Amino acid sequence: MSWVSLFSGGKDSSWALYRAQQEGLDVERLLTVHPAGDSYMYHTPATHLARLAAESVGLPLVEVEPDDFGADDVPDAGAQGDAEIEPLEAALRDIAAEGDLTGVTAGAVESEYQTSRIEGLCDRLGIDLFAPLWQRDPETLATEMLDAGFEIRIVQVAAAGLDESWLGRTLDADALAELRALNDEYGVHILGEGGEFETFVVDGPHMDRRIELEFTTEWEGTRGHIVVEDAWLE
C-alpha cells in the first residue's frame, strides 16, 4: 500500500503530504516536476528547493525534468495541460513497475484544470487519488496550516494589491488578514490558487529540520519573485 506525494515544497502539496501521513497512508516517496518554462499544471518557482525539503521530511525524492512547456509548443491551454501530464504519468508508471503503487497525493484546491488531468492519470494507472484540500474553504485551510505549525514563505507574487514587500514574507495571521482584505477589494485568492502568489514551506510538523533561505528579490513592475542565493537545513 505505497503512496507517492506529488510535491513542490509549496504549502498545498506539503499540506497534502502532511494530511496523508496523519491519515496513516504509507507515503514512500515524493515526486517533483521541474518545468523548464511557464506551466499550467505545475508550481514553477524555486522547485529545486524540494530537494532540501525532501531531506528534512526524510523521504526519497523522484525528480522529473521534462522539456520546456512553452505556450508556443501546443495549440491551446488544454493541449498544453495534456502534454504536461505525460512526463508525470511516465514517471509514475516507472514507479508502479517497481512494485505496488496504491495512489498519489495532490494539493489541488479549486483547479478543475489540474485535478481533472490528475484524476485521468490515476484512472489510467488504476491508482487512487488523495486530495485533502479539494473544495475546502481557503481561509479554513490557511488557518489549519498555521495552527499545525507550518512556516510558509511567499516566493512569488502576480496580482493586484501584492507588491514587492510580499516577496519573502511569512504567511502568518497578519498576512492572512491582509489577504482577506485584498480578496474583498481585488478578488485575490486567499491561498493564491489562481497564481496570485506561490509559496515554499520552510518548516512544519512533517519536517525534522527547518530550512533557512538567503535570497534577493526581482520585481518586474506588476509581479516578482525571490532569487534564492543559498539554502540550508538548520
Rank of each mutant, 00 (worst) to 15 (best):
R51G: 13
I118K: 05
A142M: 03
Q80W: 05
A90S: 15
G103Q: 04
Q80D: 06
A160I: 03
I95L: 13
A97Y: 08
A90Y: 11
A160C: 08
G58S: 11
A83M: 12
D76V: 02
Q114K: 09
F69V: 12
P75K: 11
G126Q: 00
D123C: 06
L92R: 08
L162P: 01
D68Y: 06
L125A: 07
S56R: 05
V104L: 07
A53F: 04
G103K: 04
Q80P: 02
D82R: 14
S56C: 08
I85C: 07
L141K: 07
D68W: 04
C122F: 10
A142D: 12
L162K: 02
A108L: 06
T143H: 11
G126W: 00
G81Q: 06
Q80V: 03
P87M: 09
L101I: 01
V104K: 06
D72L: 12
E63H: 12
V109T: 05
E151I: 13
A158M: 08
P87A: 12
I118A: 07
R124Q: 08
D163H: 11
G161V: 13
G161K: 03
I152P: 02
S116M: 11
G99P: 13
P66S: 03
V157E: 00
H43N: 13
S56V: 09
R93N: 04
Q156G: 10
D73S: 13
A159E: 03
F69P: 15
D68V: 15
F130K: 02
Q135R: 13
L121W: 00
L125T: 04
G161W: 05
Y113R: 06
G107C: 03
A90H: 08
R136N: 00
